[in-house]
Write a protein that binds this DNA or RNA. Structure first.
Lengths: 127, 127
DNA sequence: CAAAAATACAACCAATCAGTTGTACGTTGT
DNA sequence: ACAACGTACAACTGATTGGTTGTATTTTTG
């Protein structure tokens, strides 16, 4: 159950980051995270055709960063925080790898210091 | 000074997210965050030409997510955590917008409840 | 010195992307 | 009923992307 394969996760990440890699889309996401907006309302904010904005919304929707709900003739878009959090979590995982490197470097430093205490360059007195 | 304009910030974000929107690049970033690797060492890990991997490294470098240092004939790549943190911070800012929406919704709910206490659906007793 | 290794970079190609215009269809207001 | 509005989608275009091969340069190694 909930069998999320590695490539599925990477596929989603591809979609997430690609969706966020456009400033118009990031701006749209900001707005729909702050509150619901119809596609035409959003479109009025940008110097491009309605169809172009509609495409951007579609990209965000496919990436799962936003959901649309129909009300009469309007399509109301709303940002999905959980998805944004997931992207953030991915970045945190990257940071964890870095922390692993640092602790490994610390270990190495400790080991070197104990085996040969004078290994640290003695020429570095002044400059 | 350090006058960072709005578009400069957006330019960097474009580069960041675009760099992260490719799974090979994300994988390279993971490796170089965990420790220094030469470009050819990285290249051996992927089923593509050396030049292709070299290009991916260049994209990450231009985005500021990784730095290269020359040692002899090798180019050693190392991940930049600060940049990763900056990307994370951007996501956190998006989350903050959402929190703003929620508190505004809370206010609205409180106001509605005080003016017409029976507005809330009485059928919603159980779940 | 000559061969091998690691890098850099240009030129090319197929695929995708971000934008456009045009058309069609359901919904709203007069 | 009908005009205006909001949406959806197809078709097209120029720019960018992710990959390739080929060539040149520098550094190590035998």
């Amino acid at each position: 159950m909930a069998e999320t394969t590695k490539t599925e996760r990477e596929d989603r990440a591809d979609a997430w980051f690609h969706a966020l890699a456009d400033r118009t889309r990031r701006d749209i996401l900001r707005r729909v995270l702050a509150g619901e907006h119809s596609v035409s309302t959003l479109a009025r904010s940008y110097d491009m055709s309605f169809a172009a904005v509609q495409k951007h919304v579609a990209v965000l929707e496919k990436a799962g960063l936003l959901t649309k709900r129909r009300q009469g003739r309007e399509a109301l878009a709303s940002g999905d925080v959980e998805a944004v959090r997931s992207v953030g979590a991915m970045l945190t995982e990257l940071e964890a790898l870095w922390r692993g490197r640092v602790s490994r470097m610390d270990e190495l430093f400790a080991a070197e210091a104990s085996t040969s205490p004078t290994t640290t360059d003695p020429d570095t007195k002044k400059d």
